[in-house]
Design a protein around this nucleic acid. Structure first.
Lengths: 290, 290
DNA sequence: TCGGCCATGAAACATTTGTTGCACGGATTT
DNA sequence: AAATCCGTGCAACAAATGTTTCATGGCCGA
């Protein structure tokens, strides 16, 4: 298989974890989660706290290729040494050229997107949230890459308003939903350049039906923003050769859901708790442990 | 006498330094200058490197009020312990209610998320992208709210590698896909606390199969990060009452797709152009106009 | 000059450290 | 069903740890 990036002893450990015997996995997890204590305290101490046999630590070290616990701990200690590099900069073994171009590419992109977020107008989001709060029913629309944003919004809103939120096209052809829009309902349409025809049709249908139209788009002149009651803007632009950025749209979606939830007050909170209890009962999630 | 501010054992040491016997001063200065080694290496080791007698360390500790070297080192160790408070913490502005409480809520949230993005480690993303580039096939997994991230990644990767990218569970029960993982393929699993059982099962299956496992998660100790060849971290934490933030995960997904695309070179570019041409021919998009 | 004092290094001490051999038990194979 | 392997806990081991003691030597005050 492709050789794993064994940048640090910790990642070596984590990679090897699943293929170890059960008890060794336990102590391995303990070490990975408490690596600072692993470097400072004694093996027996750790064993006592982890509720395991001291010998297990020696065996763990040998199992992942070290001559013993001492050597593993030495490696962890070196990896932890505050040493040379400033807070960021990865662990850079001296790489400066070639592959490093990708890294700066990523950093630049992340910083650019971070810069875009605070520029998102907050006021319209709050207003749109109130509209959602008042809506008897909420429809959500997004095509192609915007589908992911639509689904996230759908998911989060359904956590506390399960019966009143629906993804357009979720239960059959989109066109069936278009005729179902009613006044008093809200329709959210997400899109950016180039605009998908289908999303524009949804927006138009929403407007015609008298429902409240909320557009999440990259421009006021976006087709789905025409006639919209609320327009939530984000920056989708990216450097040439990149895909448009959806980070802003996601941030808007999450803010929208959060404010709508807070407007819902105790009732919304109650419903969310019910949902979570149901998920827990179905053992959807990995149970927490010490 | 006036009690000196004993904020840390180190400052205690430095304060008491001048009033100590010469040899103890030397040792004390050595400890102050190499406090990391002081917490990790043994007394005799330090003595050898400092060119001093081991006993001097015990005497130094006693001279500044500790019962022995062990106690001094324990204090230094505690002082050095990495703070367990999350990177977020400087906030908690008092504003709760008011006319535009919702608006400040949104701006705060946006700013917090913007601050989180530059903290995403870029190096692992670049490495993971190379793994994707080399993979014969790419599987993508995400449940519940992470489903949206998975689908975005799926969408963008398929733009230039249509036949080799597949969403786990897209064509039938997830379990059918679990058996299909092969060495030389890559499996991406996205998740954060609370972790969905299904995603952990996918990660385990991927690891067992010998495929390259890429985890996008909120912690190194996330279950799906165990055994992962690449772990891409983001901050999902949000203020109480909020949903976890997916902004970071989306940003990672997009960076991953972008770097993978750039690694694809001319071939990837060609495929992307084909795809776009096909979409245009199907008049998926609204034609540009004045 | 003598006598006490203290800093200092070396060696001996009890304790704790990491390690390894052994026996038991469950799972798998023959 | 028997044989075997492997994971695991226990206990004993040698090595290393921090501490203490003791002998030495320099310093200052009588």
């Amino acid at each position: 298989m492709a050789e794993p990036a064994k940048s640090s002893p910790l990642s070596e450990l984590r990679i090897a974890l699943p293929s170890l015997p059960m008890r060794l996995q336990e102590v391995g997890r303990f070490v990975a989660a408490n690596d600072y204590d692993a470097t400072t305290r004694s093996m027996r101490d750790l064993a006592a706290e982890a509720g395991a046999d001291p010998a297990a630590f020696t065996r763990l070290a040998k199992a992942i290729g070290y001559s013993g616990w001492d050597e593993l701990r030495a490696a962890l200690t070196e990896a932890r040494r505050p040493s040379q590099t400033s807070p960021f900069s990865g662990r850079a073994k001296g790489r400066r050229h070639g592959p490093n171009a990708d890294v700066t590419l990523v950093t630049d992109k992340l910083e650019a997107e971070a810069a875009g977020l605070p520029r998102i107008p907050a006021q319209p989001i709050a207003e749109a949230a109130r509209a959602l709060h008042d809506a008897k029913r909420i429809w959500i629309t997004g095509y192609r890459s915007c589908r992911s944003v639509a689904e996230l919004l759908n998911y989060e809103l359904r956590l506390f308003r399960p019966e009143q939120v629906q993804l357009v096209g979720a239960s059959g052809p989109d066109d069936l939903d278009l005729g179902a829009f009613r006044p008093g309902e809200a329709v959210i349409v997400i899109g950016f350049l180039p605009y998908t025809n289908a999303s524009v049709r949804v927006a138009q249908a929403a407007h015609r039906s008298g429902a409240t139209l909320i557009a999440i788009a990259d421009s006021h002149s976006a087709p789905m923003a025409e006639g919209a009651d609320h327009v939530l803007l984000f920056e989708a632009a990216s450097p040439p050769g990149f895909f448009p950025s959806l980070t802003g749209a996601i941030a808007i979606a999450q803010s929208l859901a959060a404010v709508t939830f807070s407007l819902g007050g105790a009732a919304a909170k109650k419903r969310l708790e019910n949902t979570e209890a149901r998920l827990a009962a179905a053992s959807t999630y990995v149970s927490e442990k010490g």
